[in-house]
Amino acid sequence: MPAHDAPGYAGHPYNMESLTSDQVRYIAKLANLHLTEDEIETYRHQLTGILEHVQSLQEVDTSGVEPTGHATDSNTVLRDDVAGMPLDLDQVIGNAPSTSGEFIRVSAVMD
Protein backbone atom coordinates (compact mmCIF):
# COMPACT_ATOMS: atom_id res chain seq x y z
CA MET A 1 0.00 0.00 0.00
CA PRO A 2 1.68 3.22 -1.15
CA ALA A 3 0.05 5.59 1.34
CA HIS A 4 0.36 3.16 4.22
CA ASP A 5 3.76 4.36 5.35
CA ALA A 6 3.33 7.93 4.20
CA PRO A 7 4.67 10.46 6.69
CA GLY A 8 2.68 13.40 7.98
CA TYR A 9 -0.34 11.66 9.44
CA ALA A 10 1.04 10.58 12.81
CA GLY A 11 -0.04 12.69 15.72
CA HIS A 12 -3.23 14.26 14.42
CA PRO A 13 -6.44 13.26 16.14
CA TYR A 14 -7.66 10.94 13.38
CA ASN A 15 -4.52 8.88 12.92
CA MET A 16 -5.58 5.96 10.78
CA GLU A 17 -4.92 2.52 12.04
CA SER A 18 -5.30 -0.49 9.81
CA LEU A 19 -8.91 -1.62 9.49
CA THR A 20 -9.60 -5.01 11.01
CA SER A 21 -11.38 -7.85 9.20
CA ASP A 22 -14.26 -7.47 11.63
CA GLN A 23 -14.62 -3.80 10.72
CA VAL A 24 -14.77 -4.69 7.01
CA ARG A 25 -17.37 -7.37 7.77
CA TYR A 26 -19.42 -4.84 9.72
CA ILE A 27 -19.30 -2.22 6.92
CA ALA A 28 -20.21 -4.90 4.37
CA LYS A 29 -23.19 -5.88 6.51
CA LEU A 30 -24.34 -2.25 6.68
CA ALA A 31 -24.00 -2.08 2.89
CA ASN A 32 -25.89 -5.37 2.45
CA LEU A 33 -22.95 -6.70 0.47
CA HIS A 34 -21.88 -10.33 0.74
CA LEU A 35 -18.08 -10.65 0.59
CA THR A 36 -15.83 -13.72 0.43
CA GLU A 37 -13.01 -14.12 2.96
CA ASP A 38 -10.48 -13.28 0.21
CA GLU A 39 -12.36 -10.09 -0.62
CA ILE A 40 -12.46 -9.06 3.03
CA GLU A 41 -8.68 -9.33 3.22
CA THR A 42 -8.11 -7.43 -0.07
CA TYR A 43 -10.53 -4.64 0.81
CA ARG A 44 -9.09 -4.40 4.34
CA HIS A 45 -5.74 -3.37 2.81
CA GLN A 46 -7.14 -1.21 0.01
CA LEU A 47 -9.64 0.65 2.20
CA THR A 48 -6.98 1.35 4.81
CA GLY A 49 -4.78 2.92 2.12
CA ILE A 50 -7.58 5.04 0.68
CA LEU A 51 -8.88 6.17 4.08
CA GLU A 52 -5.35 7.03 5.14
CA HIS A 53 -4.98 9.21 2.04
CA VAL A 54 -8.16 11.15 2.79
CA GLN A 55 -6.98 11.82 6.36
CA SER A 56 -5.22 14.84 4.81
CA LEU A 57 -8.60 16.62 5.09
CA GLN A 58 -8.03 16.86 8.85
CA GLU A 59 -5.15 19.26 8.19
CA VAL A 60 -7.53 21.88 6.77
CA ASP A 61 -8.96 24.42 9.22
CA THR A 62 -12.71 24.40 8.66
CA SER A 63 -13.88 26.04 11.85
CA GLY A 64 -16.98 28.08 11.14
CA VAL A 65 -17.17 26.89 7.50
CA GLU A 66 -20.59 25.84 6.23
CA PRO A 67 -20.69 22.50 4.40
CA THR A 68 -21.51 22.50 0.66
CA GLY A 69 -24.06 19.88 -0.37
CA HIS A 70 -24.51 21.03 -3.94
CA ALA A 71 -22.12 23.08 -6.01
CA THR A 72 -24.74 25.47 -7.31
CA ASP A 73 -26.90 27.45 -4.93
CA SER A 74 -30.08 25.54 -5.56
CA ASN A 75 -33.02 25.92 -3.23
CA THR A 76 -35.83 23.53 -2.52
CA VAL A 77 -37.91 23.38 -5.68
CA LEU A 78 -41.68 23.10 -5.44
CA ARG A 79 -44.21 22.24 -8.09
CA ASP A 80 -47.97 21.95 -8.19
CA ASP A 81 -49.21 18.60 -6.94
CA VAL A 82 -50.95 17.39 -10.10
CA ALA A 83 -51.77 13.73 -10.66
CA GLY A 84 -50.26 12.13 -13.77
CA MET A 85 -50.57 8.79 -15.53
CA PRO A 86 -48.46 6.06 -13.88
CA LEU A 87 -46.65 3.37 -15.86
CA ASP A 88 -48.60 0.30 -16.95
CA LEU A 89 -48.37 -2.66 -14.56
CA ASP A 90 -46.47 -4.64 -17.21
CA GLN A 91 -43.82 -1.95 -17.33
CA VAL A 92 -43.56 -1.72 -13.56
CA ILE A 93 -42.99 -5.43 -12.93
CA GLY A 94 -41.68 -6.35 -16.38
CA ASN A 95 -38.06 -5.95 -15.30
CA ALA A 96 -38.33 -7.96 -12.07
CA PRO A 97 -36.32 -11.23 -12.17
CA SER A 98 -39.18 -13.19 -10.59
CA THR A 99 -42.91 -12.43 -10.75
CA SER A 100 -46.16 -14.17 -10.03
CA GLY A 101 -49.29 -12.76 -11.65
CA GLU A 102 -49.47 -9.10 -10.72
CA PHE A 103 -46.77 -9.44 -8.04
CA ILE A 104 -43.01 -9.47 -7.65
CA ARG A 105 -41.88 -12.71 -6.02
CA VAL A 106 -39.24 -12.65 -3.23
CA SER A 107 -37.82 -15.15 -0.74
CA ALA A 108 -39.16 -15.16 2.82
CA VAL A 109 -38.81 -11.76 4.43
CA MET A 110 -38.36 -13.20 7.95
CA ASP A 111 -36.14 -16.07 9.13
Binding site: N32, L33, H34, N95, A96, P97, S98, I104, V106, S107, A108, V109, M110, D111
Partner: peptide, 20 residues
Protein backbone atom coordinates in the same frame (compact mmCIF):
# COMPACT_ATOMS: atom_id res chain seq x y z
CA UNK B 1 -31.42 -5.47 -4.66
CA UNK B 2 -32.02 -7.99 -7.45
CA UNK B 3 -35.75 -7.87 -6.72
CA UNK B 4 -37.38 -5.08 -8.71
CA UNK B 5 -35.20 -5.04 -11.82
CA UNK B 6 -31.95 -6.36 -13.26
CA UNK B 7 -30.58 -9.72 -12.34
CA UNK B 8 -30.79 -11.81 -9.22
CA UNK B 9 -27.97 -14.18 -8.35
CA UNK B 10 -28.34 -17.18 -6.05
CA UNK B 11 -31.51 -17.72 -4.06
CA UNK B 12 -30.94 -17.10 -0.36
CA UNK B 13 -33.09 -18.30 2.53
CA UNK B 14 -34.41 -14.77 3.07
CA UNK B 15 -35.03 -11.78 0.82
CA UNK B 16 -32.22 -9.92 2.59
CA UNK B 17 -29.74 -12.73 2.04
CA UNK B 18 -30.75 -13.05 -1.61
CA UNK B 19 -30.13 -9.37 -2.19
CA UNK B 20 -26.84 -9.40 -0.24
Amino acid sequence: DGIRYGKSASDGATALETSS
